[in-house]
């Protein structure tokens, strides 16, 4: 029953997680104040013989305080969020030199395309793998996300990546993995009968392993 986010493995994950913990603390404090306050009032002001309630209409001072403090708090959270949002999803957020991949979402598979030896995505020497994304570690990558039929959503929890795949649009999703290993991909938008089976895997390789894997795949595609 944890409030701690699962381990992450991408560069911007820590920024997102930090925001989460800030909000967790702030809302946690507000939660305690209100709930404890309610319990105290329930006990302290319960009806007992001989007591009378106080005829109080309100307090302008109180209204100002409990308007201003929440207002300032949420505005601060908003401003803190803005920077991270711009870094992750902004118009110019994709780092220069990010390796492009095609991610085509369809009922109920992910078709991942890799650029072939010519180094260009979208040319004849590209090859496609079903449900497997292989990327090198410590290297920005960008998914050119498309959808064949209905709205799907590319969700990689460990990288704190999520982006809806919209038919008719190509959306760039960038991230940079910081650990070698295998991580899960899920579809996060109801897309039909097989929505539950749209799992896939990201394998993060060392730079050398990645080149070896690529070479193997290119050779296999040629055969």
């Amino acid at each position: 029953m944890s409030w701690i986010l699962p381990p992450s493995a991408s560069t911007f994950a820590s920024d997102i997680d930090f925001l989460y913990y800030v909000i967790l603390w702030i809302t946690g404090i507000a939660f305690v104040i209100v709930e404890v306050g309610l319990v105290v009032f329930i006990v302290k002001y319960r009806a007992r013989p001989g007591r009378k309630a106080e005829y109080i209409q309100g307090s302008t001072k109180a209204e100002v305080i409990w308007t201003a403090i929440p207002a300032v708090t949420v505005v601060v959270i908003g401003l803190m969020s803005g920077g991270v949002w711009n870094d992750v999803k902004g118009r110019n957020s994709v780092p220069a030199g990010a390796i492009p991949y095609g991610v085509h979402a369809q009922q109920f598979e992910w078709q991942i395309s890799y650029r072939g030896p010519d180094g260009q995505l979208g040319t004849g020497d590209d090859f496609t793998v079903r449900n497997q994304l292989h990327i090198p570690v410590n290297q920005p990558v960008v998914m050119r996300l498309t959808a064949e039929d209905v709205i799907h959503s590319l969700f990689i929890p460990a990288f704190r990546v999520k982006q809806d795949a919209m038919p008719g649009m190509t959306i760039d999703v960038w991230f940079e993995a910081t650990q070698v290993g295998e991580f899960e991909i899920a579809c996060a938008e109801l897309c039909g009968i097989g929505h539950t089976t749209m799992g896939a895997t990201v394998t993060v390789h060392t730079a050398d392993d990645y080149q070896r894997w690529l070479a193997d795949r290119v050779a296999a595609a040629d055969r």
């Binding site: 369809q106 009922q107 109920f108 598979e109 078709q111 079903r130 039909g192 009968i193 097989g194 089976t197």
Partner: peptide, 11 residues
């Protein structure tokens, strides 16, 4: 003639 059948989980 003929009706195609698909499985979308396995394209």
């Amino acid at each position: 003639v003929v009706i195609p059948l698909e499985c979308n989980v396995h394209g």
